[in-house]
Structure formats: structure tokens, C-alpha cells
């Protein structure tokens, strides 16, 4: 799974697209995806993989585009509210830290 994501990132780069990779580096409480989960995003917003059950991907794509523009990595922290946690199928909330970096 992770292989496919990094391979996709490399493939997009080879086509000359801007690419950012987001990685879950820490979790607290119950978090939908474990440490090491990844997603890759290109400049057009195409994405593969996931860093949560879907509740923070939108925000991560937004930050990933900024990282593609300025080349600066970003460390993002998300608290998954109980309400959102419920929607992604978890009984309780969790926190997740995501590192976003450009492939260059």
C-alpha cells in the first residue's frame, strides 16, 4: 500500500508534476490510520492513499499545495472531534500529527 503511494509520487514527479507526500508521524488516542500511513498529492489535487478515515484529507491537500508552492515542509496537528470520530466509525476522538513535504 505504502509502496504504491511512493511509487505514484515518483511517477507523478517523472511526468513533471509538483508532488507532496503527507505522512502520519504521531497519533494519540484512537486514530483512524496508524503511524506511517501516507498519502501523495499532486498540483491538480489528485491524491492516493490516506492519513485518516477521510475527515482531514481536505485540509491536508490544502496544506500540501502550499508546500508544493514554497517547498517548505509543514507539521500539522489535528484533533479529531468526537463528532467527526463518530462519523469515521470510531467510538472516541483521537489526535493525529501529519508531516507534509514536497518531493523535489
Amino acid at each position: 500500500m505504502t509502496d504504491d503511494i511512493l511509487q505514484q509520487a515518483a511517477g507523478w514527479r517523472a511526468e513533471g508534476r509538483k508532488v507532496a507526500v503527507a505522512t502520519v508521524v504521531a497519533t494519540w488516542g484512537s486514530s483512524p490510520r496508524p503511524v506511517g500511513s501516507q498519502m501523495a498529492v499532486d498540483e491538480a489535487g489528485a491524491m492516493v492513499g490516506s492519513v485518516s478515515g477521510g475527515c482531514i484529507e481536505g485540509a491536508v491537500v490544502h496544506e500540501a499545495r502550499k508546500t508544493m508552492e514554497d517547498g517548505e515542509p509543514r507539521l500539522l496537528s489535528f484533533g479529531v472531534s468526537n463528532e467527526m470520530a463518530w462519523e469515521v466509525g470510531l467510538a472516541c476522538g483521537g489526535q493525529v500529527q501529519v508531516y507534509v513535504e514536497a518531493v523535489e
Binding site: 509502496d3 511512493l6 511509487q7 509520487a9 515518483a10 514527479r13 507526500v21 513535504e101 514536497a102 518531493v103 523535489e104
Partner: peptide, 13 residues
């Protein structure tokens, strides 16, 4: 992530 690092990582995998 530098392209060189990504390429080496994928090659190792």
C-alpha cells in the same frame, strides 16, 4: 523529500 532519497528508498523496497 529529495528525489534521490525517494529513488533509493523505492529501489531498496
Amino acid at each position: 523529500m529529495k528525489q534521490d532519497i525517494l529513488d533509493r528508498l523505492l529501489a531498496a523496497k
